[in-house]
Design a protein around this nucleic acid. Structure first.
Length: 323
DNA sequence: AAAACGGGGGT
DNA sequence: ACCCCAGTTTT
């Protein structure tokens, strides 16, 4: 959960998760949809799938006991060099290095590395240094050494305004001495996000909604959502609904959700038909691939695409817009 | 070596 | 608006 995600964000997800899956076996035996449901809103859903796959692998090939060698840990799905080192050092007190975003910052500033931080040469150097440092830690303190480096980066050696005068490594820090902490680490500029627009259809009948499940080869695979289409501009929503579902209906805008992730700024307009006959309802079901009628109770068990989950929380699925 | 993956926090 | 985050996998 903590991969690319801050502790504060993770905390409530982690609590709920541990209540439901208190053991490796519980996770291994869970329904995949249940696993995704508990991860809903946290993002990077392959982490959830990998975590369950890892639990199943540990159960089947390690007799349910978590492996304690670096190579075995590294073999687990979703576990790369960083996570394997973190588990090895913190859980098992072994002298394996870790290099995360915080440690990149601490070490590259201390050493005055101005070359691009993600370049293979710099990464190689940082992992070398981290290896030396963790190896030199007192017996039994390997995990503490790694956590101390991360904590220093998270608190004192912060990205924007590092508190160099409070830093225990101030003496000997190249970037502090040369006052160029603002240029180190040298990170690639982040790509600007692009706008995207979507139109979603709230098709309801007798307290059930028509939902579709996302295909396995797309983002958010397996998650559920209202029927939705991407459009070229925001104003194209009604026309698209007519094109997809029949042009004789009147569509009312029920609400809008803005959903921003790293690369996109998405706007989803939710529309509902003003009035709908039984024939149309049947036709909708046939028109939408992978569609299914879902009750409110069932809804609470299905993993929902986050934008649509936001809409549900904002009552957009239920309530006509007030005028 | 890049890109894709999702979302939220801090300033 | 922009940068950053307790990274890993795929392209």
């Amino acid at each position: 959960m903590l991969q690319q995600t801050q502790v504060k964000t993770v905390l409530p997800f982690w609590s709920r998760w541990m209540d439901v899956f208190p053991s490796l076996i519980a996770l291994a035996e869970a329904e995949p949809a249940h696993v995704l449901k508990l991860w809903q809103g946290l993002g990077y859903y392959s982490r959830a799938r990998n975590l369950q796959a890892a639990a199943q692998l540990i159960r089947s090939t390690h007799g349910g006991r978590f492996p304690d060698t670096l190579v075995e840990i590294l073999t687990l799905p979703g576990v790369g060099r960083y996570t394997a080192g973190a588990i090895g050092s913190i859980a098992f007190n072994q002298p394996w290095p870790i290099v995360d975003g915080n440690i990149i910052r601490v070490l590259s500033r201390f050493l005055g590395i101005t070359d691009p931080a993600k370049s293979s040469a710099v990464q190689k150097k940082l992992w070398q240094v981290a290896t030396q440092l963790v190896s030199a830690a007192p017996q039994g303190r390997h995990g503490d050494l790694n956590q101390a480096l991360m904590e220093l980066g998270a608190t004192v050696c912060s990205p924007r305004r590092p508190a160099c005068d409070e830093c225990p490594l101030n003496e000997g820090c190249h970037a502090s001495k040369h006052q160029n902490t603002d240029q180190i680490p040298n990170l690639q500029p982040t790509a600007i996000s692009t706008p995207r627009w979507f139109v979603a259809a709230i098709i309801q009948q007798e307290n059930r909604w028509l939902l579709q499940q996302r295909r396995e080869d797309v983002v958010n695979a397996g998650f559920w959502e209202l029927p939705v289409w991407e459009i070229d501009s925001r104003s194209a929503g009604r026309a698209r609904l007519g094109q997809e579902l029949g042009s004789h209906l009147q569509w009312d805008l029920r609400g809008t959700v803005k959903h921003t992730i790293t690369r996109y700024r998405m706007t989803v307009d939710f529309y509902a038909p003003e009035a709908m006959g039984k024939l149309e309802v049947q036709q909708f079901h046939q028109t939408i691939p992978a569609a299914r009628w879902v009750s409110e109770l069932e809804l609470s068990t299905l993993p929902l695409v986050n934008a649509h989950s936001k809409a549900l929380r904002q009552n957009i699925w239920h309530k006509p817009l007030e005028h």
